[in-house]
Design a protein around this nucleic acid. Sequence first.
RNA 1: GCCUCCGUGGCGGAAUUGGUAGACGCUGUGGAUUUAAAAUCCAUUGAUCCUAGAUCGUGCGGGUUCGAUUCCCGCCGGAGGUACCA
Length: 844
Amino acid sequence: MSEKRKPYPFDLFEPKWQSHWAENKTYRTPGPGEEGFDASKPKYYILDMFPYPSGAGLHVGHPEGYTATDIVGRYKRMNGFNVLHPMGWDAFGLPAEQYAIKTGTHPRITTEANTNNFRRQLQELGFGYDWDREINTTDPKYVRWTQWIFLQLYHSYFCDEDQKAKPVSELEAKGWSQKDIDEVRLAFIHEAPVNWSPSMGTVLANEEVEEWKKKGETVERRPLRQWMLRITKYAQRLIDELEPLDWPESIKALQRNWIGRSEGAEVTFDVEGNDVTVFTTRPDTLFGATYMVLAPEHPLLDELDVGDDFDDDIIKYQESCANKSDMERGLDKEKTGVFTGAFATNPVNGEKIPVWIADYVMMGYGSGAIMAVPAHDSRDFEFAEKFGLPILQVVQPNGDHDWQGYTDSGTATNSGFLDGLKTKDAKKKIIHWLVENEKGEKKIQFKLRDWLFSRQRYWGEPFPLLWDKETGQHSAVPESELPLLQPEMEDFKPTGDPRGPLINCTDWINYSEKLQRETNTMPQWAGSCWYYLRYCDPDNTENFISPDAENYWGNDDGFVDFYVGGKEHAVLHLLYSRFWHKVLNDLGHVKSSEPFKKYFAPGLIMGEDGQKMSKSLGNVVNPDDVVELYGADSLRLYEMFMGPLDQDKPWAMKGVEGVHRFLAKVWRVAFLEESEGGWVSSGKIVEGENADLAKVTHQTIKRVEEAINTLRFNTGISAMMECTNAYTAAGEIPRDLFLTFLKLLSPFAPHLVEEINATLGETELVSEQAWPVLDESLLVESEIQLIVQVNGKLRARMTVPADISKEDAEARALADPNVTTHTDGKTVRKVIVVPRKLVNIVAN
RNA sequence: GCCUCCGUGGCGGAAUUGGUAGACGCUGUGGAUUUAAAAUCCAUUGAUCCUAGAUCGUGCGGGUUCGAUUCCCGCCGGAGGUACCA
């Protein structure tokens, strides 16, 4: 019966305000052309990564970033901005499909239930989203434009000369054949070994393999025809255009690393009458190449005529490698390989060197062939040692290092015309020589690979493409037929057919006598590649975004002003979005070339035990439980008070109690508890003035503003706690100061603030009022404290007039008894006076 | 191995153009209020010397400086990313 007494009645007023906001559309943000739009205001577009609405519901990690953006968004609103702060659902995805396979429940049903639950949870946290702009990637009205954008890629190629995408119609006009156009299309079909998951019945992108393997799925290599997107053409731009963005350096580094740019040279060797090109970052070591290694899959191996004995070895070795993924190859640290029986001719000196195959050379990087310089490459060194291949020094190390296995730069030696040159200069000279002699050229190589874009799933956007049954040529579905939705199905089981589950829907597949539909679907990334654009104009039926909306809400130097979301998406999602945005930019559909001007990644919230939250560890905190016990404001405030936003930090329920107590303290400034448990006016809010409280309040304005601008919310909350402590101690608080304070707190704890504000008789919502203006004059101190150090050690504090002269400060410091005890018997060598800070006396 | 970041009380963390280390909160201890509890309030809470006051103290070792948590060099430890990428 005796329910735990609530320190303030959040359970009554939080739902009340949430309904009020929803009914009055308090956070509705009209855009250009919409009723109530005020074009005179500046705009601010602040965006959260939209969630995948899983069956498990919201995790306490979600509200971390969402609260941060909510605070910044509310702050900007109060400062006169039109703030676009939307929310939606990245709702395609495997879990709903797998649930469908198990239960027969259509993914659309599951998805709807999950989004409803997520929406409820977010609304119960009081976030100021404009729910009229809600989007869902599975909504046919959204799918239509995802497919439309895909067709823009399909109809484009990358022009190397201008470094941008252009319509393939330009090539058609020049008389290019379809076959040649397909060689350059941004969306193209390609047969290659891919990661096929028998357990899931789909292929996966390289980037996804490890994630699913961890979850227990099986993945194997298998050659299949797949749709790819030619992201590699954008590699250089994706690096260069990252530079000016306001992103954390660590995230930029992650992307650069992933794109993996290497400068070097291509060198052509003759192998038994065939040209074989290798890529090397150290062309200066060409004289030290003592053998060549081909990847086991290298096409040359089929051409070579080396005799049956060698052929057998080669085939045996190829078979042993074929079953291993790149990842597994990496795990076998022990070098393996076989001699092919063939020899290559080193172009620079005519040396005959043996050609080997080994799986430490990958077909997917460079040309799938290397010149091995064992003296100056650790892998080649290891291989040469194991197989007794010659090791020839061609670099004289800087400093006192052993030349064997020395991989840094130095001075060329045993290298003919390069001898004596520093590595840097030797590189230049040898490249010049290679070009002159038509044996190679300078080359920039990237690790980034083209994006495997097709999946064999039901719950994804179907490709709006058709195949001619006779010619085998593909073509696009007319735009008027978009969206192209999946057919209704009862049975979602994988067929084992690598064309995916849609292959069973014969009615759907057969488009006409001649034409058949593509049965692959797009990966989950597709919808999240462009959703930030759709929020600006979510109901547009003519265009994916109107030029007016694009123009008003976007920036030229990065569309979204501020993007917040987990760093687990730092590489893939952010890279894919940037790629699509650049294509849309190249084709003239958007003005900016980058989607996100500023980006920030909140840290992970760990379990109370300091470990990552997981069901198996039983340390997961459910936001619903926290809201039930302490209210939404407490949850919001706690997540911001835990520590720096970008840092990983452990959950502590005691900490929630702490901020809960703080909010109760604010409540009790305005209210007094009756013996019956009700609340009446405290009578402490009065008309009047109080210079001390005015000073504290204005200091708090300053500190909270700084905290919001630098995303260090924890320090802003500390400031508000100190301010509240001052109010509590004061007894009576001037009404205008308290109302000012409420404005400061409102972005953090909007429910509590609106409730107090309304009860005080104010009629306008705090969130719709202007942010307080700092009065610097109130912060001016007439007296300040100076500290006095002797030899850098604190010895005394003195209260002095704020405008004290250096001379007076020095004189008073030297006379201070706490100072003289430490200077007596010593000679004062020097006195440093830092105005308004300290006096340091150097004496010995 | 490489890239990026981090290391401050019992805990989360404050303190940046180098200037009082430990703000704010949690925990602990003592007290007030209460029939009791909840809630609330007050004091105290880096270590050592066991009062004063002093000494030590921001991972370790150096350096620059009147002065270093902050800047520089070299280590140690941790987190994340990536990895036979030629």
